[in-house]
Nucleic acid binder design. Structure first.
Lengths: 166, 166
DNA sequence: CTAAAATCAATAATCATTATCACTTGATGC
DNA sequence: GCATCAAGTGATAATGATTATTGATTTTAG
């Protein structure tokens, strides 16, 4: 059994911004200020966030240069379509994370502090392949989340954060 | 690698109804007509359903004996707490299925017809155990969904059903 | 049988997300 | 450069699933 759960690395030729521009052009969409701002903010660092988090970061980072709520939602969907982001549903809200230039992985979700811990396992893909053969099912992707209590929360009884997804 | 994806069986001493009664009593909750009706309808057959589906079935099955929408939602939550049902989020809505007396399993989700196919794999639990050790993470459960196209939809290009979760 | 407590149905409220629509702006050709 | 115009934006309202509220109604203890 594969015991290495560490994430590898992925080399990419284009920056997220360039990749998104390429995607937009291929779809006949425009490269707007708002999309620029959002891509820059989203790829400033790697973390897990939802639309509301991004809104907050945007208003904090670009004083004055606001982006409206609908545009944030619209652009997040586009970034998913473009393969730059991946999304998952967690507790009613949609959570996003980097996909482009970031290695394939799954998550452990701490029920106490809501933290998401990433890990990689080749085994999951193997299960998928075997399933595909046996059920004539064309697997295009998967989502695996282990729920439980993280190391931090096991030690200190009191949860650290309430809804901070990092 | 384990190639057997078929679901085994689980023996239970109590019927779902008895089990729920026991749960309610242990919590000082009451055994009401509405909860009776809902448990009976939910365990009439094994399938995947959401609150709305259940509402429809209830009004169809028990002509006159209606249960209000809030009560359906409340009772579904109680059934999850009682360990009788499991829930997962799929496309914005909460989908439920039997847990009590039903073997542990995961799902393949067809993107075309929305069908959920169940399978069992011991490997997933093994991954969880290894992860728990390595990250000091106490695993209490997991959710694994393979997305793709099912055998039926691969043959006929036209999707069969639009939102029938079975 | 009676009363206190839990539960119910109906309604309104909430929350995240999406549709609408008048106004603005980026890409393209001149 | 600049005009043109479809795509994009923001403000707002709408949606759809779920939850809180509240007054009426059962259930169980005594």
């Amino acid at each position: 059994m594969d015991q290495d759960f560490s994430l590898g690395t992925v080399q990419v030729a284009l920056s997220p911004r360039e990749r998104f521009d390429e995607f937009l052009q291929s779809r006949g969409k425009r490269i707007t200020q708002q999309r620029r701002i959002i891509v820059a903010e989203v790829f400033r660092r790697h973390d897990h966030f939802d639309a509301e988090d991004l809104m907050d970061h945007l208003s904090a980072a670009t004083a004055g240069r606001r982006v409206s709520r609908p545009t944030v939602y619209r652009t997040l969907s586009e970034l998913v379509d473009a393969g730059l982001l991946r999304s998952m549903t967690l507790g009613g809200r949609t959570v996003y994370e980097h996909d482009y230039g970031y290695p394939q992985h799954d998550h452990m979700h701490c029920q106490k502090c809501n933290k998401l811990i990433e890990f990689h396992s080749d085994e999951v893909a193997q299960i998928g392949e075997a399933l595909a053969q046996q059920h004539q099912f064309r697997v295009t992707g998967h989502r695996l989340i282990f729920t439980g209590i993280c190391a931090d929360c096991r030690v200190q009884k009191r949860p650290t954060r309430k809804l901070d997804l990092v």
